[in-house]
Structure formats: structure tokens, C-alpha cells
Computed example of a mutant assay.
Amino acid sequence: MNQKEDNENRRDNRQASKGGSSEVQTEQTSNDHSSNQQGSNESLMQTQQASTNQSSSLDQSGQMPEQEKPPAKQSVTQMTESVFLAAKAKNYFQISGIISFAIIFLMATIGTVVLFVSLLTLPPWWLIVIEVLLLAWLAYFMISVYPTKKYQRTKWRFDEQGLYIQQGIWWRKQYAVPRSRVQHIDVTQGPLQRNYNIAQLILHTAGTMNASVSLTGLSHEKAVEIRDELLIQEKYDAV
């Protein structure tokens, strides 16, 4: 009897363990099914959101709006107002003033020494003071005043008619060079001008008065652009 009861208990335990494992498997299957369903719902929502964004980007005509293009670079022939020279032109004028003053100062010093040696005596003190004051004023004018005024009072404009130049500190001068009068064009650069990337534009025109007009202080790129534009015009005129 005891053996039969033990067998029955073992059979019941086996059935209970099988039932528990089947319940666990059923629960895992339901969890996997719910997670798969949640993932499909999320992917569906993402697809709907992408389609909504795409439809909102369409304009009223049903076409995609064109991308904004950067503003086109203004051609040198589209200028409507006179402009100043290149920004580095002022520095170039100042360095040129320093070099010119250094030459004048050296010549004045040599002349003073030669005068002292030839006279074998010292000049009056007031003469030395006057010379020093004159050199100081000349240095201030050549290094500070003149370059600034020259830069501020030099303007130019190049359009379909030709080149217009306005310059001069005390006596103002205005030049109008029509395209049809230009014979040939030179773009020159000295060592100091190359350092500041500026150039001198020289226009040789037909006629005896003001046969050549020069403009110093343009950027090298702008001077070359004006030259090329005038060369194109000359080709059309030749044809």
C-alpha cells in the first residue's frame, strides 16, 4: 500500500511540474507577442511621422520648395556708387610715408653734419630747434595725415560706361575714362604692394591730354577683374 501511495504521489508531482512549465512557457509567449506588437506600433508611428514631415515640406503646388541659394557675387560692372580703395591701401600709404620720411631725414642729417664740419662751428641753438620741429611736423604729416586723407578722398566706380576716379587732397580731380577710349591696360605691383596684395591700375587712353590714368590702392583681384572686363569689351569692339 505504501508503495502504491508513493507511486501516485510521484505521478501527481510530475503532472504538477508539467503544468507549471507549460504556464511559464505560455506567459513568455504572451510577453514576446506583446513586445513584438509594441515594436511594430512604434515603427508604424515613425513611418507616419516621416510621411507627415514630408507632406508639410511640400508647398501648395505639390512640389518641393527650392533650396535657398547663396547671393550671387556682384560683378564689377554692376556698381552703382563710388567706393573706397582696398582696406590695406591705407597701411600701404603709411609705410610708403615712413620710407619717404626716412630718406628725407637721412638727407637732412647728412646735410647738417656737412654744414657743421665746413663751418667748424656749431649753429645757433634756435636753428637746431627749428630743424627738429620741422622734421617732427613733416613726420606727422607724411605718416599720419597724408595717408589718411589720401585714402578717404580717393573713390572709384566701374560700370558699363567706364571707369570714374575721384581723388586729391587740396585740389580735387575727377576722371571719367569711357570704355571706348581705352587703348591698353597695365596692372603693376611693387614689392611693398605685393606684401599688402594691392596693385596699381593704369589705363592708357587715346588723346594727348591725360593719356594715361592710374589708380593705386585697388586689391590685386579687383584690378585684374577690371582689366579682364575691359579686354573683353575691346574684343567685341574689334569684331
Results as ranks from 00 to 15, higher is better:
220 H>T: 15
198 I>K: 06
185 I>Y: 03
238 A>W: 10
234 E>N: 12
66 E>V: 12
230 L>S: 02
166 Q>R: 11
164 Y>Q: 12
225 E>Y: 04
193 Q>H: 01
46 Q>K: 08
187 V>G: 03
194 R>C: 03
228 D>E: 14
45 M>E: 15
102 A>E: 00
64 M>H: 10
136 A>K: 06
227 R>P: 05
162 G>V: 00
184 H>G: 00
126 W>F: 08
31 N>P: 07
216 T>P: 04
131 E>R: 14
123 P>L: 05
83 V>A: 10
66 E>P: 13
48 Q>W: 05
146 Y>L: 14
224 V>Y: 11
33 H>M: 14
232 I>L: 15
106 L>N: 06
162 G>F: 01
235 K>E: 12
68 E>K: 15
60 Q>G: 13
142 M>P: 02
173 K>I: 04
62 G>N: 01
11 R>H: 09
92 Y>F: 04
161 Q>H: 11
147 P>V: 02
80 T>V: 08
191 P>N: 01
175 Y>F: 12
193 Q>T: 00
22 S>F: 11
80 T>C: 07
37 Q>I: 03
215 L>I: 03
173 K>W: 04
48 Q>T: 06
9 N>D: 15
49 Q>L: 09
118 S>C: 07
89 A>L: 02
161 Q>W: 07
210 N>H: 09
188 T>C: 08
217 G>L: 01
41 N>Q: 13
185 I>C: 05
144 S>Y: 15
139 A>V: 05
77 T>K: 14
119 L>Y: 13
59 D>R: 10
